[in-house]
Design a protein around this nucleic acid. Structure first.
Lengths: 144, 144
DNA sequence: TTTAATTCGGATAAATTTATCCTTTATTAA
DNA sequence: TTAATAAAGGATAAATTTATCCGAATTAAA
């Protein structure tokens, strides 16, 4: 469904958000450890998220990654997915046709529209804050 | 969503089914041309579908691929997807966690269950026959 | 019986994704 | 001012997916 990069990206963002709720700034090292992801690769993905203004980064000692409380509400999963995987999950034909649309649909078109709008709605309505609080109160988990 | 291989596989299967409805057996060459896919790669995928008893193959002159009328009803998309991409689209965590389940869910677990069961239902209830007839009467398209 | 058409199967190449390593830059604190 | 810490960025490697090529096996028709 999502690429590995995107999976790590979402997990990292949720972890950062949870820690930011406690006022803690976290390093790549800690993040990779806590979400059980390859550290150097995770660093790359965090760079992408930073460039896309999804998370904030601070260099130097005591530096690390954080997310503003307000951004946790604004940033929906859709924004993270788009920053990493692009919009191929929303746009484009389920069977890979370039010119598939309601006028000239592929055999799966109508059924796919349903499934995907379902997914899109989910991603567009789920905020980082929502995911982070579930984590914080111990309802959900990020490792393994 | 699906791998390229799976996209080609579904398109090929639908095309073969449509031609089989007309009593025509088709070659890899024709298939690749008609569904606009790389021929040698498509041949590999057709081998997989044959091994999984999704389509039938006949060697030699006048040989090619075909699907029995009955199989068109029996074979749902889920079977094709499983033969090519495995069941990772059904099973497993949206965020890539190994031990994610209702007891120890990832932050996205519940929302993902919905989206995916939607997808699973669609794949399990859509038959090759259904897709092939849409093609045959000119309601849907496979190329481009 | 030979020829030609077709799938099958193995080897390999190209492209993309995943992952690592190392140097540079920024910044804090001693 | 220096040393240490952390992210940024570039180069490269490993793994996987996508794709091609070619000889072998099968079979129908000439």
């Amino acid at each position: 469904m999502f690429s590995k990069a995107c999976e790590y990206g979402i997990r990292a963002a949720v972890y950062i958000a949870m820690q930011s709720l406690d006022g803690r700034r976290v390093s790549v090292n800690e993040i990779a450890e806590e979400i059980d992801s390859p550290m150097a690769f995770t660093a790359k993905i965090l760079q992408q998220l930073t460039k896309n203004n999804i998370i904030d980064s601070v260099k130097g000692p005591t530096g690390g990654f954080e997310i503003e409380r307000e951004a946790m509400d604004t940033v929906k999963l859709s924004k993270i997915v788009k920053a990493i995987d692009g919009d191929k999950i929303y746009v484009g034909c389920g069977l890979g046709l370039k010119e598939c649309n309601a006028d000239k649909p592929c055999p799966l078109h109508d059924k796919f529209v349903d499934v995907r709008s379902n997914l899109r709605t989910m991603l567009q309505s789920t905020s980082l804050y929502e995911l982070a609080t579930g984590l914080e109160v111990g309802l959900t988990y990020l490792k393994r």
